[in-house]
Amino acid sequence: MTTETSMLDKFEEKIRKEIKIEPRDWMPEKYRKTLVRQISQHAHSEIVGMLPEGNWITRAPSMRRKVALLAKVQDEAGHGLYLYSAAETLGTTRKEMTDDLHTGKAKYSSIFNYPSLTWADIGAIGWLVDGAAIMNQVMLCRTSYGPYARAMVRICKEESFHQRQGYEIMLTLARGSEEQKAMAQDALNRWWWPSLMMFGPPDHESKHTAQSMAWKIKRKTNDELRQQFVDATVPQAKLIGLKIPDSDLKWNEEKGSYDFGEIDWDEFWNVVKGNGPCNKERLNARVKASEKGQWVREAAAAFAEKQNQRKAKKEQVA
């Protein structure tokens, strides 16, 4: 009997047995919706994330750095593409998703609403922002939805390369002149707290966490991932002689991990609501790219249509 309940049983059994859910499998509507929201939000983050770093391509300080940065930003575009494709397997088109981004209905990671002010920000973004993203994405390689998990495996390899590249920029600055050191420290000061916010609200306030954990979309809570990131990153900062801007940061022997200061959640919610330093610029840049590309997309479609007609005519004659 293929009633809703028996399908649900089958679905839940798969989740229990760690069998991936595939596009043609039956799934609860809420599971589908949660995934579309999460994957498209992730895709938008990759695309909007191109902007703060893209800012520095034309100003990179050496040819080697310029080419590496350009390749990195291009990787992010590629991630966006895989993720849109993964979300499309759930029955939503890329156009629907990007329309939601442009109208402000869909969100993207708030971290990209902060400005990249100096070259050191390129180092800090790679080290911290890609670093935080990896914590999340390594977990998502085991997410229950097959296409999402597989996209993540590809993406994670590149993200860890980005993280090392960013850290290496910071290392070079930290070992450089006084000016360069100050630039690196300033970037760390500005990016540290927003990076911690990337993991989302604390567990007791996170409205999606419990259900997502039950469906094995998520495997770790926001707070667990945040702790993991702090523990991995603090020693890296020490190693290059930079100071984490948190006076409450302390090793906790008992826990075997770091205690850290209170996150300013007012700032977090403010940026989410659109009041970050660059929310308007970022969204405008995407809307503008889309509007300016409208005639190009129309022309490409019109040309493809003409080609089809020409082909059909030829076949008729033949």
């Binding site: 902007l51 893209g54 391509i57 034309t58 310029k66 930003v73 966006g80 790219a289 590309g293």
Partner: peptide
């Protein structure tokens, strides 16, 4: 390279 992040279609970007 000035186009990076601003292309008319993601694939073209």
């Amino acid at each position: 390279s000035e186009w990076c992040g601003h292309g008319p279609v993601l694939e073209q970007d």
